[in-house]
Simulated scan of single mutants.
Amino acid sequence: MPLHEKSLCPFEYVLNYNPRRIPAALTEVKCSCQKPSAKLIRGHAMECQPFKYDVRVLMFNDECSSFTEHVETITFACIPIIKNDRDVKGDHDFMTEVNADIPQ
Results as ranks from 00 to 15, higher is better:
M1E: 13
P2R: 07
S7Q: 08
L8Y: 10
C9E: 09
F11P: 07
E12D: 12
E12G: 13
N16A: 10
N16L: 14
Y17V: 11
N18L: 05
N18T: 12
P19H: 05
R20A: 08
R20G: 10
R21A: 06
I22Q: 06
I22R: 02
P23Y: 01
P23L: 01
P23E: 02
A24K: 15
A25S: 09
L26T: 15
V29R: 14
K30R: 14
K30F: 09
C31E: 09
C31V: 13
C33K: 15
Q34T: 04
K35W: 07
K35G: 00
K35E: 07
K35R: 05
P36I: 03
S37M: 11
K39E: 09
K39I: 07
L40C: 06
I41D: 00
R42A: 11
G43L: 04
H44L: 15
A45R: 06
M46N: 03
C48W: 02
Q49W: 06
P50G: 12
P50N: 06
P50I: 05
P50A: 10
F51H: 14
F51N: 08
F51E: 09
Y53S: 09
D54G: 08
V55S: 00
V55F: 03
V55L: 04
V57E: 07
M59P: 04
F60H: 06
F60C: 04
F60E: 01
N61T: 08
N61E: 12
N61K: 11
D62P: 11
D62I: 13
E63V: 12
F67D: 01
T68M: 13
T75L: 13
F76M: 07
F76L: 11
A77Y: 12
I79Q: 09
P80G: 01
P80I: 02
P80W: 00
P80V: 02
I81R: 08
I81G: 02
I82L: 05
I82C: 00
I82H: 04
K83V: 03
K83F: 03
R86Y: 06
R86A: 07
D87G: 08
K89I: 07
G90V: 02
D91S: 02
D91H: 06
D91E: 03
D91G: 01
H92D: 01
D93H: 02
D93R: 03
M95K: 05
E97L: 13
E97Q: 04
V98H: 01
V98W: 00
N99R: 12
D101A: 10
I102A: 11
Q104I: 15
